[in-house]
């Protein structure tokens, strides 16, 4: 399906909004199915969802456990003496939160079907200032770099003879806490260098920018946007 990038942005916003509004697994599961169906329509390899999800597995596990333990109500499924550890409500809340993360990550994959250049162009044609649109794409490009930076630091620490798997949790937290400052500061430093590099190459040299290409909506874009916005609004109102 060849849709305008802005139409695809609207689809992602609709799916993510519903994922944030819905609270139960019974509502989020059909939403996930719709999202996966859309990925198929956009010819996105479904297995790539797993590739992206793998990176968030630990986060999802932690979120799931916290929800299971701290959400009370329903039948007690696991207890330690008289203290209830896991309840049926907690289990459902954990599952819902994990499903919500999966829906948002899957929906975001739709962004991979168009280039960052089109993304900027789309936002600019929606009257969003170019600087702001450019900043959003840079932020998106910086996120994997941030992750790589962290992986590099962890590799460097291990190569200095620190067995991270054998270090106690207290020491591990201490180690990562002390690493946070240099990693964040390093990222800020890189951002500052990037700004200088961009300005030295004429970024914002002229107040008005011109574009070689223009994105144009066709009837299918209007139809798809209308359908998605209407359904989303109806679902939100009836919720």
């Amino acid at each position: 399906m060849t849709l305008d990038p802005r139409t695809k942005m609207v689809i992602v916003i609709c799916l993510s909004t519903l994922a944030l509004i819905y609270n139960s697994a019974g509502e989020l599961l059909p939403l996930l199915l719709v999202t996966l169906l859309l990925l198929l329509l956009f010819r996105i390899d479904i297995s790539s969802v797993w590739v992206y999800l793998k990176r968030f597995l630990q986060l999802m596990l932690v979120v799931f456990i916290i929800q299971c333990i701290f959400t009370r109500g329903g039948e007690v499924l696991l207890s330690l003496g008289s203290t209830a550890l896991v309840s049926s409500q907690g289990l459902l809340a954990g599952a819902s939160l994990v499903l919500r993360i999966i829906v948002i990550i899957s929906a975001a994959l739709i962004f991979t079907t168009f280039s960052s250049r089109d993304f900027i162009l789309g936002l600019v044609q929606w009257k969003i200032p170019y600087e702001l649109a450019f900043m959003v794409t840079i932020a998106m490009r910086f996120l994997p770099l941030f992750r790589d930076e962290f992986v590099n630091v962890v590799t460097a620490i291990q190569l200095r003879g620190v067995e991270l798997k054998q270090v106690s949790w207290g020491r591990k937290i201490d180690l990562f806490r002390s690493l946070l400052f240099p990693v964040v500061f390093g990222a800020l430093l890189k951002a500052q260098q990037l700004a200088v590099a961009m300005e030295s190459r004429g970024f914002r040299a002229y107040p008005r920018r011109t574009y070689l290409r223009r994105l144009d909506f066709i009837w299918i874009d209007y139809a798809v946007m209308l359908i998605f916005i209407t359904i989303t609004l109806m679902l939100i109102i009836s919720y």
Binding site: A156, L159, G186
Partner: peptide
């Protein structure tokens, strides 16, 4: 072997020092 086991026997200087400097 783990990276730490290797690292205790072989020191490694990265091509790009930015990748291996992490302390304050």
């Amino acid at each position: 072997m783990s990276l730490a086991q290797i690292g205790r026997r072989i020191g490694y200087v990265f091509q790009n020092p930015d990748l291996q400097l992490f302390c304050a």
